[in-house]
Amino acid sequence: MFFERLIEMKTSYLANKFIPVSTIVILIGLFWYLVAVPMNSDKVSRQFKNLTASEHILKCWSLKKPKLPTPHQIINEMVNTTFFKKISSKRSLVYHGWITLQATLAGFFLGTLLGILLALGIVHNKAMDLSVMPWVIASQTIPILAIAPMIIVVMNSVGVTGLLPKAIISMYLSFFPVVVGMVKGLRSPDQIQLDQMKTWSASSREILWYLRFPSSLPFLFASLKVGVAASLVGAIVGELPSGAIAGLGARMLAGTYYGQTIMIWSALFAAAFLAALLVFTIDFLQKITLKRMAIIR
């Protein structure tokens, strides 16, 4: 019985997840190699003469500074700068990733806190309910690229540098989904549940603690997943204009200065990998929390 179920689960995993996902990955990879040939062809023709067609193509896939690096070049660079450099080295991807991750997490924490506090205010205070939301929405219509340098410059001028300015930019991006989700979540209990609390003569603090907050958790987790990805974007954007020398954003910027396309792409992939890791972590926390609360089974 048990083994039959295990096999069943494995086949369904294979059919539902693994095969479709890997098919897409392979298709993208093939397309990538295909496109890399015309993209890099000019440069190969300039550097090398008298190549056969197959040699020409191979060269297109292995240039030092290609217009479009191929997946194996990027993976190679990533493996190199992740595992074969000292973590403290300026060439280590782990070092740069860690710098960005710190700012991301700090900003994510601040943004979540700000988002929850604003949502509590909106739900419990009529004046805030009417006045805050338009500002929250307006804040997100300003392009972050416009506001990020100002934050960096202003904070630099008062002597605050390093992690905090980047965290503030992360916070600016990540509080928004949390406010929206939490307002919805805190208002998700239906009228019967609120009436019931009233019959017990519960205070609004008790209603918050026993009813509103637990009801809002599924909404909170959904918001956190969006928020953490936005935080990472914020941290990277925060590293671009500041002339920062460390962090994935700084790595991308350095890559564009020196035409190191492979470096840009590997920083980009590292960022994507980091984002996936963060989102999966929250997804995991969500699953165990909601399972323990018997909201999902």
């Binding site: 019967i192 549940q193 019959t199 017990w200 018997a294 909201i295």
Partner: peptide, 29 residues
């Protein structure tokens, strides 16, 4: 003064609380 108990048409139990946890809820409050 909590002079009455009210039973609604829908049971309105809290999904994240067990049966005894649900019964204890008003007592906790």
């Amino acid at each position: 003064a909590r002079q009455y108990g009210y039973v609604f048409q829908a049971a309105g139990l809290y999904p994240w609380r067990t049966v005894s946890g649900n019964i204890k809820l008003p007592l906790e409050i």
